[in-house]
Design a protein around this nucleic acid. Sequence first.
DNA 1: CAGTGCGCAACTGTAGAACAGTTCTACTGT
DNA 2: ACAGTAGAACTGTTCTACAGTTGCGCACTG
Lengths: 226, 226
Amino acid sequence: MTTALEGLVAQRTTTAQQIADGLSERILAGAFRPGERLRESAIAAELGIARNTVREAVRLLEHGGLIRFQANRGAVVISPTPHSVDELYTAREHLEAAALAAPLGAAQLASVEAAYDNLVTVTASLRRADIVAADLLFHGAIVATLGNARLDAFYAGLTRELRFYLMALSAHERENENPRRLLGEHEPLMDAIRAGDAERAQREARHHIASNAARVQEILAASFEG
Amino acid sequence: MTTALEGLVAQRTTTAQQIADGLSERILAGAFRPGERLRESAIAAELGIARNTVREAVRLLEHGGLIRFQANRGAVVISPTPHSVDELYTAREHLEAAALAAPLGAAQLASVEAAYDNLVTVTASLRRADIVAADLLFHGAIVATLGNARLDAFYAGLTRELRFYLMALSAHERENENPRRLLGEHEPLMDAIRAGDAERAQREARHHIASNAARVQEILAASFEG
DNA sequence: CAGTGCGCAACTGTAGAACAGTTCTACTGT
DNA sequence: ACAGTAGAACTGTTCTACAGTTGCGCACTG
């Protein structure tokens, strides 16, 4: 049992995969707007690679959920609709409630607590992108207590999509998001989790998520006017 | 509101997608064994299409979960491991328990009941593939009561994968599966659901799924000897 | 004979060019 | 305002080519 080779791995990643990852980052960073098309030839030319490879990369991306394909129109960046936002949030609600169905064990509590601490810290930074990420990470930590990689991956997909929507919509947000308010929303939930009160934790989680959903729906509706 | 055009849609599907669907079917039908490689050139030649297109089709397939990619080895049909089977079943457990967290409404109950009836009918057919499908469909109906398309899609992915494993392992199964036993396992669950006893339904579901998982693990373990 | 190195065949990963069919856009005539 | 249309811009798909990897058998070696 040699641990001497620990962590040693060959490069082992195809160009298409690298392009896919890169594009994913750009999209999340806002380089592409919702509904925008990803033109293969343009990307291929700009990156100096074959169109075939770009095509493959984009297929990989599709799997990540940030884009979808339309026949003869190629890859299109997803855009939020009332319905899709609703589904995202209710799916989250169910998963998190499932994770909170029973009081957390010590190790689980510790990891959730760590994510919460991180959220508290980051909130002070006032950088919206970071705060959103930390927020979603905290919720991800709750789901992770289920200890199931497939559920984690699924949930991660939901939050990635949601994160994109939130960033895209942030331009339309009127009032300046109050960090104190964000924490105020998470505190009761964290309290209930700490207290080992499963029922209350579930209620808090559901309420927190639902009220967030409502707020996002409002912003979304508003973004079609201004 | 003209209903005269109801159901009329143009072909609107790319060849890659068709190939992907076709391959998916073949895999589920057992035309490819777990661990088998999907060789692009062979498929392309056999179907009279370009290798690029096959490649794209296979990328689409990957998304469906029945195959995964290994660098420089291309597409490989997934194969069950104790760990992957465990994750599949516990993920199912969490989702179904979530769906049964509250008593079902009338409409929801009706659809679950319909799926149960179908299962009862199909069981009489003694055709293993059909029974497995109906079984998983019944459980899918339970999850569907959550009314969330994303959760449904995720759950469908789990069951598709599971269905493939079950069919692949069925060759190794010694005892002849007793249909009566299968129904005997679902009955208490259906009873609890009908009774509107959420807690009991959750317990039954968890127990049913867990005991199934254990049985599959045994078969899996046994399949490495014989 | 276990083990190493070599070579060959079979594939995958990527490139590049080409073309038919579709969508988009701007222009046309009415 | 509006149907029609021509052309540009792309996508979907095919074909050809080639470098890099993997799998495998075979000879070679200590």
